[in-house]
Write a protein that binds this DNA or RNA. Structure first.
Lengths: 198, 198
DNA sequence: AGTATTGGTTTACAGTGTTAAATTTTTAGC
DNA sequence: GCTAAAAATTTAACACTGTAAACCAATACT
C-alpha cells in the first residue's frame, strides 16, 4: 500500500524543489530578489503552498543555511580521516572553504547574512560554537598548541572569524570576476595563522 | 542675504535628520525595519520628500556607508600622526575599529551589507582598494615588510579581510550581550598577524 | 494683480510576507 | 458508481514596501 509513501515522496520532492528554486533565484538575482511568489511561480504552485512546507521565509532560509553548515562539516570529517597533521587539516579545509564560497556563493551568503540575505535565527551559530571539543579543527588547534580547553576554544574562535570573515569580506567587496584572484591571499592568511600558533 | 542661506541650512538639517533617523531605526529594530515611510513619519514629512534629498534608498544607505568609511579614515590619520612604529599604528587602529563596531554597529552593518542591510553600490570598496600607496596601513605594512608595491597591496588585502572580516563575523554571530567579550580575541588576531609578518 | 516657481502632499502602482476563506480534488464507505 | 468526508490547493485579502505622477498651496517675480 504505497499511498502514504507516494505522498511522502512527492512532499519530499516539492520541498527540495522549493529549496533549490530559492537558491537558483538568489544565485542569479541576489537574495533580495527571492520572494515567496517567485518561488511559487517556478514550482508551479500558488504562494500559500509554501507554508505547508516551511513555517515562514525565515525557516526556509534557515534550512538552506543548515544544509550549508552540514555540508562543510561532512567535508571536514572526510579531511580528518585522510590526514594526521593538524596543520595539514587546517590547510586542506581552507581549500574546501574557498571552493565552497565559489561554488555555492548564495548558500554562503545566507549562512552569514551577507548581501541582503537575512535569516534571523541564531541556531546555527550556537551549534557551531558549542560541542567544540570534538570539532576536528578544535582538536587540530589543541594539538598544535596544547592549552586549557578555554584557551583552545578562544583560538578556535580566532580561526573561525579569520577564515569565514575573510571569505565574507571577499564575497561582499569583490565582483564575481575578480573573486577567484583572492584565493592566494586567503590561503596565505590561513598559513600565516597556522605558523604563528606554534 | 539670508534667504538662500537659510533654505540651504534647513535643507542640510533635514538631510542630516533623515540620515540620523535611518540609523536610529536600524539601531533599535535592525536594517530590515528601516523604511522610507518610517523615516518620513519620524521627521514629520510625507514619504516622497525623502526623494528630494536622496535619489533612492540605496543612495541613502551609500551616504551612511561613506560617512562610516570617512570616519575610520580620519581616526586612522590621527593615529598616523601620533605614532611612528608601524606595528603600533596597526594595533591602535584595531582598537579604533573595535570601538567603532560597538558604538556604531548599525553603520558597520551597512558598510559591509551585514544582517539584512543592503547597499548595492560598490563605490566605497573600489575607493578603499585604490590609491593604496598613501594609505597609512599600506605604508605601515610596507615598513614592516618591504616588498614590491603589488606584494604590499596583497598583504594589505589580507590585513583588510582579517580585521573587518573578524568584526563582521563577530557582529553577525554574537548576540549584543556577548559581543564585548570577543575583543581580546580580535586584538590577539591582529597582533598575531602583525608578528607573523616580520 | 497675475503668473511662474517652489515645497509638499495625496494618490497610485507594483511588489512583499502571510493568513483565512473558498474551492477544487482526492479518498473512503457503501 | 454514488455520496460523504477529508485532503489539497487556490483565491482573496491585509498590511506592508519603494517609488513616480498628479495635484495643491504658498511664495516670488514681473
Amino acid at each position: 500500500m504505497g499511498i502514504f509513501e507516494r505522498r511522502e515522496r512527492i512532499r519530499k520532492q516539492v520541498r527540495a524543489d522549493i529549496l533549490k528554486t530559492a537558491r537558483d533565484i538568489a544565485r542569479e538575482e541576489g537574495w533580495q530578489a527571492v520572494s515567496i511568489r517567485k518561488i511559487a511561480d517556478v514550482i508551479e504552485y500558488s504562494p500559500p503552498i509554501l507554508y505547508e512546507y516551511f513555517d515562514n521565509k525565515d525557516k526556509l532560509l534557515e534550512t538552506i543555511r543548515d544544509e550549508g553548515f552540514a555540508y562543510l562539516h561532512e567535508e571536514l570529517l572526510k579531511i580528518k580521516n585522510l590526514y594526521r597533521s593538524p596543520e595539514k587539516i587546517i590547510i586542506e579545509f581552507a581549500q574546501v572553504q574557498w571552493r565552497f564560497l565559489l561554488e555555492q556563493t548564495e548558500v554562503f551568503q545566507v549562512m552569514f547574512n551577507l548581501n541582503g540575505a537575512l535569516c534571523q535565527s541564531q541556531k546555527a551559530y550556537q551549534i557551531e560554537f558549542s560541542m567544540l571539543n570534538n570539532h576536528p579543527i578544535w582538536e587540530a588547534l589543541a594539538m598544535i598548541r596544547p592549552r586549557s580547553a578555554d584557551a583552545v576554544s578562544k583560538t578556535f574562535y580566532e580561526w573561525w572569524c579569520l577564515t569565514y570573515g575573510f571569505l565574507a569580506m571577499s564575497v561582499v567587496t569583490q565582483p564575481k570576476a575578480t573573486l577567484t584572484n583572492m584565493e592566494p591571499s586567503f590561503m596565505e592568511s590561513v598559513r600565516r595563522f597556522s605558523r604563528a600558533l606554534a
